[in-house]
Write a protein that binds this DNA or RNA. Structure first.
Lengths: 121, 121
DNA sequence: TAAACATATGCGCACACATTCATACGATAT
DNA sequence: ATATCGTATGAATGTGTGCGCATATGTTTA
């Protein structure tokens, strides 16, 4: 019926040049992708997986062993990470080895750590 | 009863030196905080808010106007952002102005954008 | 070919969480 | 004082999603 602000139309006299702000913002699609991208990092199991792959390429069963998690759970999360192009996989016999997809990922993880550790920003 | 891997114990012969990997990983607390931190970025409404504050300090009613969102929704999200120390607020009369908390945040947003835009990493 | 292993996947459930509505709180103006 | 504006908050609701179970697929070994 209506799109967006319903009964909250007459808010705040402050007349900002909305357009001036809007064309500085990323495209809607980009912001959606950005949110989706960060969302993948925003989960403990996945962060743990990434923290391991940060140092070493490993196969699924090794992740299972190290994290002491259900194999299914890990596979599910690896699937998410793969879909987001955050990790890549390599087949070798029965095993499938996973590693971080690129240095961007490594850098982001590191930046995040620095932030929560309160290092000088 | 049992902690962790249930019936999936006998997985993979591959004997990795688990300890060697474990002490390279961040502390459990840190990984949890890291996940929580990224989670805050992993939501469209919050990304939109941050994309605006990226350029300019604004009060709530201005955000409401620009994003055409429910005022309550925005307040709820600002609360989350505040709790995560991603934005800070400043009171001025009836209005409360929000802005990015530090340059770390700005940098992270930018890095994310670069990544999804596929810029050379 | 059969059996054992490594990984992936569909389903179901439980829980987390974003949004809305209603309302409360604080500040300003009349 | 009271009305109005700007913002915050609690409850209810709907949606999304992480995990476990069972099972399927693919690979190696016997």
């Amino acid at each position: 019926m209506n799109e967006g602000a319903d009964m909250n139309d007459a808010v705040c006299d402050e007349q900002v040049p909305l357009e001036e702000i809007r064309w500085k913002m990323p495209l809607d699609v980009e912001m959606q992708e950005l949110a989706n991208f960060f969302k993948v990092f925003g989960e403990l199991s996945r962060i743990k997986i990434l923290s391991i792959l940060f140092h070493k390429e490993l196969c699924v069963c090794e992740l299972v062993e190290i994290l002491a998690m259900n194999q299914s759970a890990i596979s599910h999360q690896l699937r998410v990470l793969r879909a987001a192009k955050i990790v890549k996989s390599r087949k070798e016999g029965k095993h499938i080895f996973y590693s971080l997809d690129d240095d961007h990922v490594r850098e982001l993880l590191w930046d995040g750590l620095e932030h929560i550790r309160g290092d000088c920003g």
